[in-house]
Simulated assay, not measured.
Amino acid sequence: MTDDLAHFGKVLVIAPHPDDEVLGCGGTMARLADSGQDVHVAIVTKGYEPAFSASLVDQVRDELSAAHTILGVKQCHFLDLPAAALDTLPGSQINAAIGQLVSDLMPDTLFIPFVGDVHRDHQLVFTAALVASRPRAQDVPRRILAYETLSETNWAAPGITEAFLPNVYLDISATIERKIEAFAAFKSQVKPFPDERSLQTLRALATVRGSTIFRAAAEGFMLIRQII
C-alpha cells in the first residue's frame, strides 16, 4: 500500500449524522491523517428534543470526539441543522450552511454521502454538497467522492433508485483496525451482529471491498468529479 496521498490535499468529510463519516470512510480518514493530510469533518445535523434527548446528544458528541481522536481528525465542524428533519428546511438554508463551510475551508477533496441512500437527510446533504462545490472558481474542490453507509446506502431499491456502484477503492489494510475501534467508540450506535451496524458487518464489508481489488481491506467510493 502506498502512503503517497498528497494529491488529496486538504480533506473535508461531510456527514449527515455523527458516525456516518466513520462508517463510510473511517479507514481512509485514518490513512489520510497518517500521510500528513489535514482531515476535517462536518456534522450537518444535531438531534433536538423531543425526538432526541439532550443526554443522548451529549453522549454521541463525546463518542464522536473519541472516534475522531482515534482516526486523527484535525477538526470537526458542527452545522447543527435538525436531524431527521432536513426536509422541513428550505433548500437554500442547507445549501448556505454547507456552502459557507466549503468556502471557508477550501478543501481539495470532498467525501460526501451517496444520493441513493434511503435516509432523506443523506440525499439532501449530497445535493447541497454539490451545490457548494460548483466549479465556478479556481479554488473549488478538485475531487468529490461519495461513500457508502451501512443501513442507508444498501437499504434503498437498486434498479429502481440510484445504485451504489463503486469505481474507486482505497486500500485500508493498515487502518481497518482503527476504523473498527473508532466505530466501537460509538457505544450508543453499535448493534449486535447480525445487525448491519455491528462491528462484524463493518469488517465484512471492508473485506469484500478489499477482495475486489486483491487487498485485505478497502473502502469503496463513487467518483463524482475530479479536476486534474
Rank of each mutant, 00 (worst) to 15 (best):
L199V: 00
P82N: 13
A129D: 03
D34I: 09
A132E: 01
L223Q: 06
R197L: 11
A6C: 07
S198Q: 04
V208S: 08
A137F: 06
A146K: 04
G27Q: 04
L86E: 02
A84N: 15
V140I: 13
P166I: 13
I70V: 14
S92P: 01
E162M: 15
L202T: 00
L130C: 06
V22F: 01
R134Q: 05
L86G: 01
D87T: 08
R120P: 00
R203P: 03
A184N: 08
A174Y: 12
Q200W: 03
T2L: 10
F193M: 05
V39F: 06
A54C: 10
I70F: 14
S133W: 04
S173W: 15
E148Y: 03
G220S: 00
Q200C: 02
D117M: 03
V125N: 10
T127L: 12
M1H: 03
A132I: 06
L223P: 01
V11H: 05
L79C: 09
S92A: 12
G36V: 04
H122A: 09
L12M: 03
Q59N: 11
A218C: 05
G9S: 13
A42Q: 00
C76T: 15
D34R: 12
A206R: 02
P113C: 12
V44I: 02
Q75M: 11
A182G: 04
A66T: 14
D117I: 01
G9K: 05
V131S: 04
Q138V: 11
E49I: 08
T201I: 12
R31D: 02
L71I: 08
F111V: 10
G9P: 04
D117H: 00
L12I: 06
A30F: 09
T88W: 07
F214V: 14
F164Q: 02
G91F: 06
L71T: 03
R215D: 04
L202C: 00
D87G: 02
T149N: 12
F126N: 10
D171V: 14
P158W: 15
E162D: 11
A33C: 00
E21S: 02
S53V: 11
T153V: 05
V60M: 12
N167S: 05
G27V: 09
K74P: 02
T153A: 11
V131T: 12
I112A: 01
R136Y: 10
H7A: 15
D104K: 09
A217F: 14
E196C: 12
A128F: 06
T153Q: 03
D87L: 13
E196D: 14
E152T: 13
M29S: 07
A83T: 15
A204M: 10
P192M: 11
F8T: 07
L199F: 01
A218N: 05
L86I: 10
D171L: 07
L205M: 13
L71C: 03
I176P: 07
I176T: 13
